[in-house]
């Protein structure tokens, strides 16, 4: 018997209200420009960002989401995390789906590395005591040493990446969500990520990773979902997903 899926998405879609500023050319229509400037007569439209997406994640699955920039990968991750809610379809998540979506944005630039660990940890629902327990492990992964007392703003991108990754893997959610920033590190970082990820996704947990780096996905994932302009092109084994993705990437002859 198949175990119950951790996550089931049935034809989910997301519409986004977007504001398109009306024609703002001052030379051609000065009156319009003034009206627009003072009364902000912009048009509010609902635009579909994701459309008709269906897939399932079973315990132990490692799903890679492939797609070009702007295909809707990050938006889909945020849907799974419960930041956005689908405007159509049905999304069922068993347990927790959590992750970090942007290296610097989730962090407070003026706070020290250590303060960021506490802030993010508390925000994710870990108590002060538990964070203190996990601190040595985090410190070891980040390799920051005394730099942990420096302000996050002064960190190099590698330091930020290590801290962000260590912080966001403090919790062990049932489904770990990772955005493509993960691919930014050097070889050493990637090797460390691989070992840590393997530990995290062990057993019944799963991973969803969005990226356009095929190499990274091959290393970490077993299944693939291809997104193109908000539509689902393919869902299934990673190899076939990569083939499908290559079709999209290939410039039209």
């Amino acid at each position: 018997m198949m175990p119950a899926p951790l996550l089931r998405a049935q034809n989910i879609g997301l519409d986004f209200p977007t504001i398109t500023p009306a024609d703002r050319k001052i030379m051609t229509s000065p009156v319009r420009f003034l009206l627009d400037f003072y009364f902000s007569r912009s048009l509010r439209k609902s635009v579909p960002v994701l459309h008709d997406i269906s897939f399932e994640i079973y315990p132990g699955d490692r799903l890679g989401i492939l797609g070009l920039n702007g295909a809707g990968k990050s938006t889909l991750l945020r849907l799974l995390a419960g930041i956005y809610f689908p405007t159509s379809g049905h999304l069922e998540v068993q347990g927790q789906a959590k992750g970090l979506f942007d290296v610097s944005m989730g962090m407070q630039a003026e706070a020290t590395g250590l303060e960021n660990i506490y802030l993010r940890g508390l925000q994710m629902g870990i108590s002060l005591g538990e964070i203190k327990q996990k601190l040595p492990d985090i410190m070891e992964f980040t390799e920051l040493g005394d730099d942990i007392h420096k302000v996050f703003d002064t960190y190099s991108s590698g330091m930020r990446l290590r801290l962000a990754f260590a912080v966001s893997t403090m919790i062990t959610p049932d489904i770990l969500l990772m955005d493509e920033w993960l691919g930014a590190g050097d070889a050493r970082f990637k090797a460390k990520v691989k070992t840590r990820m393997d530990g995290l996704v062990e057993g019944s947990r799963s991973l969803v990773l969005a990226s356009h780096s095929v190499a990274l996905l091959k290393q970490l994932c077993t299944k693939g979902l291809v997104l193109h302009k908000g539509e689902q092109m393919y869902f299934g084994s990673l190899d076939d997903a990569i083939k499908c993705y290559d079709e999209i990437v290939k410039p039209k002859a």
């Binding site: 407070q108 802030l119 508390l122 629902g125």
Partner: peptide, 25 residues
């Protein structure tokens, strides 16, 4: 939202920290 001890710790720490950072220098 699940409101337990951890939530109160977060609310307090995050707000205390805002003030601490503002006047740090």
């Amino acid at each position: 939202l699940k409101i337990d001890k951890g939530r109160w710790q977060y609310w307090f720490y995050a707000s205390w920290f805002k003030i601490a950072v503002r006047y740090r220098k």
